[in-house]
Amino acid sequence: MTDADGHFSKQVAERYDDAQGPQFQKEVIEQTVDLLAELAGDGRALELGIGTGRIALPLARRGVPVHGIDMSRAMVDRMRAKPGGERIGVSIGDFAGTTVDTTADGPFSLAYLVFNTIMNLTSQEAQVACFRNAAEHLAPGGCFVVEVLVPELRKIPAGQNIVPFRTGPREWAYTVYDTVTQDATCHYIEIAEDGHGEARTIPFRYVWPAELDLMAQLAGLRLRDRWDGWTRLPFTEDSAQHVSVWEKPIS
């Protein structure tokens, strides 16, 4: 069940930064910010799905002016409570269509969408709209960066459609795939020490690298780089994720 904050309610926001995934490790955050700061140069950065500021805050500390778009006020409130969070502008809304007024400060040199957040848009139409929205905010020569996993369909046994990705004494998580619609609905189950449980379901739409390239082309962008991750290792057939950079042509 969702509220005005979508699937990222106050309860989720309060625990979001406690996650143990690699994306929350200091080294990974530094690698992410290194690359984004390089691409931003002397310009501004627009984060689609800014959340609690995991990337935006350290990027801003590097001297890059950052503006964010996010539909979850609870996540943004969490960012605001952190040092420097009050200085980052945020537009509340769906990042597939919410626009930022660039009249005063000009367009952005960088737009970015990290940690599989493109998959929060659960239709191809919305994902295409997101690329167009990012492109419209970019200055000529500016870049749009997306970090997203490669669909894990090779993990699905024949005749099944469920892939578990987290197991433990009190916590389970798994994805249910629909290979026709590209739906990948994630289910999270947690049991507290007192025996009370909590279950959450979040819908996603998985997307292939080649499909993203076509979305970029429709938005007037062209592929510049694709790596296995923020370390810029080559992207191969065995890569589980990719960081892709599309550029808005100068002319």
Score class of each variant (00 low, 15 high):
P203H: 07
T179G: 01
P157L: 08
E152S: 00
D178T: 10
N161Y: 05
P169K: 09
I156A: 05
V150T: 07
E171W: 14
L214D: 01
T185W: 06
Y177V: 13
A199G: 06
I162T: 13
T179L: 07
R205S: 09
F144K: 04
P209A: 02
V163M: 01
K155F: 07
R205A: 10
G159K: 08
A216K: 04
Y177R: 01
V146D: 02
W172Y: 12
E193H: 00
F165P: 04
A192E: 10
Q182I: 07
A173V: 11
Y206D: 04
G197P: 00
T185K: 12
R154A: 06
P151T: 03
L214N: 04
V145H: 00
V207W: 12
P151Q: 02
E147K: 03
E211P: 07
A192Q: 06
V148C: 04
V180W: 15
R170W: 13
A199I: 09
T167P: 08
W172A: 05
A184Q: 03
W208M: 08
R154Q: 09
P164R: 11
Q160P: 01
A158P: 00
E190F: 15
E193V: 02
V180P: 06
D183M: 11
P157Y: 09
P164L: 09
M215K: 03
A173G: 14
H196I: 00
T201K: 15
G197Q: 02
I156K: 05
R166I: 14
I156Y: 10
E193Y: 00
A158T: 13
L153A: 03
G142E: 11
E190P: 06
I156L: 04
E193A: 01
E211I: 09
A158V: 05
A216L: 05
D213A: 06
Y177W: 06
Y174V: 14
K155M: 09
E152V: 01
P169L: 13
E147M: 07
T201A: 15
P164G: 13
G159S: 08
V146F: 04
Q182K: 04
D194K: 11
R205K: 13
T181L: 09
T201C: 13
Q160A: 15
I191E: 10
Y174M: 14
I162M: 13
R200F: 05
D194E: 07
P203W: 03
R170H: 10
P169R: 13
P151L: 03
A199K: 09
V163C: 07
Y177S: 05
E193M: 00
K155A: 15
E193P: 00
A216M: 02
F165G: 13
T181M: 03
R154W: 10
V207Y: 08
V180H: 15
Y188D: 01
H187T: 15
A173E: 09
W208Q: 12
T179W: 00
G141L: 01
F204E: 02
T181R: 08
H187F: 10
A216N: 05
E190G: 15
R154T: 06
L214Q: 04
E193L: 01
T179P: 03
R154D: 05
G142R: 03
A184S: 06
G159T: 09
T167H: 14
R200Y: 08
V148L: 01
W172C: 11
A216E: 02
Y177G: 07
P164I: 11
V150Y: 03
R170S: 04
V146H: 06
Q217C: 08
T185Y: 10
Q217E: 09
A158C: 05
Q160N: 12
T201Q: 15
T167M: 14
E171V: 15
Q160T: 12
P151S: 01
V148N: 02
V163I: 14
N161F: 08
